[in-house]
């Protein structure tokens, strides 16, 4: 990463206090995001995977500045979001946009497509008049693969996939540099997922976007991202270039995730690594390595201290104390019959 990263977080934490009853008692803290340091280089896509409750969406919200992080910093293009002046922040916010998970609640049902797409323009390019905004909306609609004359329609007249395209168009209206996509295809049919993902891929290349792509679907992540970060219980347990992560995972959790992804073969089914139990409660995480309670390779030392990310290969980091593991890759798992 010779060029400076566009997005950089340093030990970002997002804790939520839980109040117990009216008169307190001991208040507990949910550590939804517990110290994440990542970099997203310009024009690249970082896929963030993890199961529900791992804190990936919370992290995404903190990156977007929707919540104030408890600790740590988030820099965008070299500017620290926490210390930026409000004028700087305003400029930054134009450059960071977001696409949402649920295409049904992300569009205002009372606004036509032209109005919805016009909102970012109203506030970031106030010199435009209504007709100009509408032209821009129609242009952008064609860019995301919908006919430009649909600008006068209302959200209920569109299918889920079309609505998601409108959501993407809205994010692109003000020419952002960075897009945060939070589970953007998980609400869609599989056939539509592919179309929307291809659209993302094309737009990312054409507009040279930097993206944070949050999902729980490994196949999706493999398709769109240059790098993948795997999250577990509020921490990143492994981060690597996509191909590398799939071919030689270094963290047992990643291995288990890869084994769980479905394959098209009926014969030679890969060996599935079934994790015991559920993800532990972030209210009361296990001591030491957060994954040790479900890890098939756990040692006694794993309970002592929380492992930090360390470099296994260039650009490939994992938070596991064991060097001696030879974990199965996605393809190995397929080839070796059970």
């Amino acid at each position: 990463m010779s060029e400076k990263a566009l997005i950089e977080t340093r030990d970002l934490k997002q804790h939520f206090p839980l109040r117990k009853g009216l008169f307190g008692g001991k208040s507990q803290v949910v550590k939804a995001v517990d110290g994440i340091s990542i970099e997203i280089p310009r024009r690249s896509v970082l896929g963030l995977v993890g199961e529900s409750g791992s804190g990936k969406s919370t992290f995404g919200q903190a990156v977007m500045g929707l919540t104030k992080p408890t600790a740590g910093s988030m820099t965008f293009d070299g500017i620290d979001m926490a210390t930026a002046s409000s004028a700087e922040l305003r400029g930054l916010k134009r450059r960071m946009q977001m696409v949402f998970q649920d295409p049904f609640s992300s569009l205002n049902p009372r606004m036509s497509v032209a109005e919805t797409l016009g909102v970012p323009l109203r506030f970031h390019e106030p010199q435009l008049n209504g007709a100009q905004r509408k032209d821009r909306a129609a242009e952008m609609l064609e860019r995301v693969g919908l006919p430009g004359q649909y600008v006068d329609r209302f959200p209920h007249e569109f299918s889920g996939g079309q609505r998601q395209r409108i959501g993407i168009a809205r994010a692109l209206m003000v020419h952002p540099d960075f897009i945060m996509a939070d589970e953007v295809v998980s609400a869609l049919d599989v056939s539509v997922q592919a179309q929307v993902l291809n659209l993302f891929g094309r737009l990312q290349r054409d507009l040279e976007l930097t993206m944070l792509f949050i999902t729980h679907d490994l196949a999706v992540v493999g398709h769109v991202s240059d790098f993948v970060a795997v999250m577990y219980l509020g921490r990143v347990v492994e981060i690597a270039p996509t191909r590398e992560l799939f071919s030689s995972p270094k963290h047992p959790y990643t291995e288990a995730l890869l084994s769980a992804a479905p394959t098209p073969q009926t014969k030679n089914r890969r060996q599935r690594i079934v994790l015991k139990g559920d993800i532990p409660s972030p209210l009361n995480p296990p001591s030491g390595c957060p994954f040790r309670t479900r890890c098939p390779y756990a040692l006694e030392e794993c309970a002592h201290s929380t492992p930090e990310l360390r470099e296994f290969a260039s650009g490939h980091k994992a938070a596991c104390i064991r060097d001696d593991l030879s974990l199965a890759s996605a393809t190995q798992q397929q080839k070796e019959p059970a």
Partner: peptide, 26 residues
């Protein structure tokens, strides 16, 4: 709490816009 309000916020909309143009009509 709906996403379209978050979307409006990310779009840079003012409180007045969100209250009277996004929320009230609904």
């Amino acid at each position: 709490e709906r996403d379209f309000i978050t979307a409006a916020r990310i779009s840079g909309a003012s409180h007045r816009w969100i209250m009277f143009r996004e929320l009230l009509p609904n």
